[in-house]
């Protein structure tokens, strides 16, 4: 490899740093905001707090609701991830490995799901969830969330499965292993990167979803954290420092999740979606 000149290296670093600053500054302001009083937040939103006040963070962390919201969000998001990965990988496997009549139509049918944000049909969706008796029930969020993530998941997983060497299956077939057994014994274990990728995207979507939990959940003990944030925004007052502290605390789990999965994501995307 040719060595780049010092100047171009410098330009590269400057450009990257500039973009990184644009990304980080708002996030930093959010994080620091939680340490300020309302007054200081208004007067100096970006500076370091003149006095580090941990009150708001301690208030949130020792209060009962934060951990409840967090647990609810975790239960719902992780369940949605597991369910999506299971259902979508099974379907994607069939699409990738088995030729059958109507396969193409069924795939196009599933693709429709990508064109359809929750808000479009939230009222009909609500009545559907009510019909199944799933209001005020985490399943009332997990199942629709899974359904809405399905299209995206199937697309990525199918491409990945198509690239698994065919010879592997033939060898397994000779050993008396059918499609079903092969899926659990070989396909799934070989697919960690793409499963991590899809899992992360589903997790993030579910973790941040606001509209669906809003219509499904009424009891505060079942609330997820985006509902919790809105809880702080009342009719006449906005406690910005509290909201910012809350946001900071809730980005953390998603960030941790991502840090662990990020190397798989690149690998997963590489082999899953983008090779022809």
């Amino acid at each position: 490899m040719k060595r780049s000149s010092l100047l171009s290296q410098l330009l590269r670093a400057a450009f990257l740093t500039f973009i990184a600053a644009l990304v980080i500054l708002p996030l930093l302001a959010t994080f620091l905001g939680g340490f300020k009083t309302l007054g200081e937040l208004r007067a100096a939103p970006f500076g370091f707090p003149s006095h580090w006040s941990f009150d708001v963070f301690i208030d949130i962390l020792t209060g009962p609701v934060f951990w409840t919201y967090l647990r609810n969000s975790l239960v719902i998001s992780l369940s949605a991830v597991v369910l999506t990965l299971l259902c979508a990988s099974m379907a994607a496997y069939v699409f990738a490995q088995i030729r059958f009549f109507g396969s193409r139509y069924l795939q196009s049918y599933m693709l429709l799901g990508m064109m359809f944000p929750f808000a479009t049909a939230i009222v009909p969706l609500f009545f559907q969830i009510n019909r199944f008796g799933l209001l005020d029930n985490p399943l009332g969020i997990i199942l629709p969330q899974t359904a809405f993530s399905m299209a995206f998941a199937v697309i990525l997983l199918r491409s990945f499965f198509q690239q698994l060497p065919k010879e592997l299956f033939e060898a397994a077939y000779v050993d008396g292993c059918g499609y079903v057994g092969f899926f659990f014994r070989f396909t799934l274990p070989l697919s960690t990167p793409i499963l991590a990728t899809v899992g992360t995207f589903v997790f993030v979507q579910s973790w941040n979803n606001y509209l669906l939990p809003l219509v499904v959940l009424n009891e505060q003990s079942l609330f997820t954290w985006p509902l919790g944030i809105m809880q702080f925004r009342g009719e006449f007052i906005v406690e910005w420092n509290r909201i910012l502290a809350f946001v900071s605390l809730t980005i953390l789990p998603a960030l941790v999740f991502f840090t662990f999965t990020q190397k798989y994501i690149v690998a997963g995307l590489t082999r899953g979606s983008v090779k022809g």
Binding site: N130, L214, Q220, L227, M230, Q231, R233
Partner: peptide, 20 residues
């Protein structure tokens, strides 16, 4: 249970017609 103003208004109609 408490709900913020905006959320309260947008979910009430459907909620009132449900079992919850």
């Amino acid at each position: 249970d408490y709900l913020d103003d905006t959320s309260f208004k947008s979910k009430l109609p459907t909620l009132l017609q449900s079992s919850a």
